[in-house]
Design a binder for these strands. Sequence first.
DNA 1: TTGTATGCGTTATCAG
DNA 2: CTGATAACGCATACAA
Lengths: 343, 343
Amino acid sequence: MSVTIDDIAKEAKVSTATVSRVINGSKAVSPELTRRVLEVIERKRFKPNSFARGLATDKSSIIGVIVADISNPVISTTIKGINHVAQQKGYTVLVCESDGDGRKEQMLLERLEEQKASGVILAGMNVDHSRVEKMLDMDFPIVMVTQQSSDGCITINTVIHDNIQAIIDAVSFLYDNGHTRIGFICGPENDYSSGIRRLEGFRMAADSLGLDIPSSYIVHGDFSYESGRECMTRIFEENTRMPTAVLACSDLMAAGAVSGAASLGLSVPQDLSIMGFDDTDLARYLNPSLSTVRIPYFEEGSKAAEELFALMESGEKATGKLVFIPHKVIRRFSVRNIKTHDS
Amino acid sequence: MSVTIDDIAKEAKVSTATVSRVINGSKAVSPELTRRVLEVIERKRFKPNSFARGLATDKSSIIGVIVADISNPVISTTIKGINHVAQQKGYTVLVCESDGDGRKEQMLLERLEEQKASGVILAGMNVDHSRVEKMLDMDFPIVMVTQQSSDGCITINTVIHDNIQAIIDAVSFLYDNGHTRIGFICGPENDYSSGIRRLEGFRMAADSLGLDIPSSYIVHGDFSYESGRECMTRIFEENTRMPTAVLACSDLMAAGAVSGAASLGLSVPQDLSIMGFDDTDLARYLNPSLSTVRIPYFEEGSKAAEELFALMESGEKATGKLVFIPHKVIRRFSVRNIKTHDS
DNA sequence: TTGTATGCGTTATCAG
DNA sequence: CTGATAACGCATACAA
């Protein structure tokens, strides 16, 4: 085996307890002994066995992250943020992919329990009341990020952007650019925070701005490029009078919409303005580059990790705290100003 | 605490040894006892404590993955592949981000050693001889993926695509489309597999095809969008006679090159053909969509994981095995056929 | 301040 | 086939 605390103790002519103390700083140890122990630890390249430590303390230096899809840029950026603070704190991150499958999520949660994860972050997972119950029963605190529970009473700590306000701001941006006939490519109807709430935001904005939006202007996609194309086509087919602008709930769908519009003989932004959401890198790479709403996913991830550590330190499972990360409308070239007085 | 093997043993009126046996199937147990034990385990929702197990066996069900940047699509797709097979095997994946910092990599490697990871995969890390030495000294087997060691004698098992042949095929594709003046936006000069080897492939292709490539046609980027733009500009500025096609070593740089070309008043593919590499989703999203070389990163990841498990099972640290994953040239719309007889 | 001794939950060895 | 019991490496309550 590798070198253990006993080896160190013997070599430094102290007890194992003393070695343990200098390692953890748990109790005062005389400078002299500290020096001796440290020296031996260094020399023998001693690394505490995390199993033994975990067994003794019932704690690990692992936090789990459950996501639906690692390769989704929004998610991977969030993970990056989580990783950033976890690494600082000396924790490592166990990334688990659920493919959006509820049963798999439950399984992963249980596996994380076996691994004695000290905390878990759920990124972009759809969670309802029954899930919340189960989760509060786990051995570790949980925080949700990028997605919030559809459970009425918020119990699980959550870090998220304001989906309603973000959409309101996006619609206002379009309105300020002269658009009143605005199409909306939203998320799935069963997706609480990113589907339902954004639609809510859209309706609120339309109301308060006095926009008259026919229901055929509103279509549901699934955040993918392909669905963006399809939605664009549907809007085109189901309306004799097209919108002048279309707001999509993800940059990816916006990209699909641009492509769909092109196939329909519409060019962006001359014939039609299109706005995205997220501000993933893609928004900059596209031509025309996308006007969009920037959601700072890295910050959301780091903030979520911070909240998790706070919970871990306080020993609470959940305080119901809800943290909003501010978004920002980004102007690029996919939205044209159609106010009469300027062009 | 939670329910332990002792609780199960007591409840089922057997010894802890028997419980352990039915859990692990390590030794034959009579059907009767097996049934009883299983029943109690089910009923009490017993989950073995992975610390205790690890302490006893000195093995974990964790494999580590060290990457430079999680949010890089190439990397996250590779991780997805790794995750896929790891999950099947009942292993979970510890994802560590090094930001490409060599010191951090070493630190993470050591942390993984503490965690008693059963194996580690290095994705897209630059590794040279001295690093190889250290890595062979670790407690676990290591396999590299997407990047190979610049160490002459290959010792660490590696799963990778054939960077030389892939570029040769790309150049041939351009050649078949009538291009003989071909620019090359390659990777960093200090990047062994994706920088140096691809350049090697380019030179070999140019030679065998009898292409005359001025050195001003060859520029180094860093795989980013921005560097793609810059490289395009540089090629433009440093040549009175422009290439008819430019091959970039990543889709991202190709995207930047397209954008750079546009700023220069060149439209793709009418005035200039541009070809990418990787076949990330971006290649399809762009307009025109990119002709590129498809590298199946998901498969590379899964294959790497399989190789790692093979190593773990055989108990070897490294066998020097080198596995190539086949690539494929994908024709889309960023490359124009300029042979005289067909437009 | 330091050392001793025990427990943490499993696996594995060795008798039975 | 089954059951005691000794590791495994560390933390910590208790003594000194």
